[in-house]
Amino acid sequence: MAIAAIEILDLEKSYLVGFWRKRPKLALRPLRLTIEEGEVFGFLGPNGAGKTTTLKLLMGLVFPTAGTARILGMDMDDPRVKAQIGFLPEQPYFYDHLTARELLNYYGQLSGIPSKERSARVEQMLARVGLSDSAGIQLRKFSKGMLQRVGLAQAILHDPKLVFLDEPMSGLDPMGRREVRDLIQQLRQEGKTVFFSTHILSDAESLCDRVAVIHQGELRGVGKVAELTSGTQGKVEIVFYANAQQVPTALTALGAESRFGGGNMVNSVLPEAQQDAALDVLRREHMKLISLTPVRRSLEEYYIQQLRPAENEEIRNQESHKQENQKNELREEASRKGVGV
């Protein structure tokens, strides 16, 4: 049986807050999640959802209040785990007195890469993230995008089996984001497991095999991207060239919502049940069909759906509190007047 890359077993974290540090604040509710080897797994959630807390728990940077996790079949506290994982923190900051080459060499030393291999490996990583020309410059002179690349290089320097990336695309320009996406794709091809947190859904949709949605420290949903986005909305989208700047009335009569693109190109969305009838209309009117595609649910829709229950629940809670308060006020007023409610 294949070993799961990450097995999170009811990992929970709360912090003590307040002046006397006696009030517990839950940062992560008991989380149970399994990530298989070779998967690219996206951990989605809005800011403050608990993504970074989960990553810090797995990295041993903070300690769980309860629960545990197994990484590559070993207990998360096992020192051997660290040799096989790579980590890129959110908005990484490195020793700015070092050059990119010195920093990678230092991390190579700490990771136990033998000295004979180390310098070749460092140069290889610098080339891989496109920093060979800037390798001798101190990091204090690096831009945010360049620091992110250094961060990626240090995370994969020691050829780890499992890579954790915390918001790897955050703050990057479109070119930088594309480079990071390409790198994650390469890691997938090399058979690495990638666990990355993000709130940029388009990146998750294009990269991940599976995603989990977390909100307010609670896991809201998990599933394969292909399955989550496969459900059609019961609608199809037809793109065609009209003969003039006018949508055939027969098509509108089928319930199509149409809009013109460039020139005479029309984009119509209509119920799936009417698709054959719509094609007949196009044939009859001698209009050129460009494409017909089912309207799929996007990851964004799934994500918002997962977050909504919480918002609805909050509204419900607030409403019930309000009602309870009103009832109490009525009771008090009634008791003052000596009338039962």
Partner: peptide
């Protein structure tokens, strides 16, 4: 947060 990348190693 320079410590994060150090302590995520052995």
């Amino acid at each position: 947060r320079t410590l994060y990348t150090v302590l995520s190693r052995p």
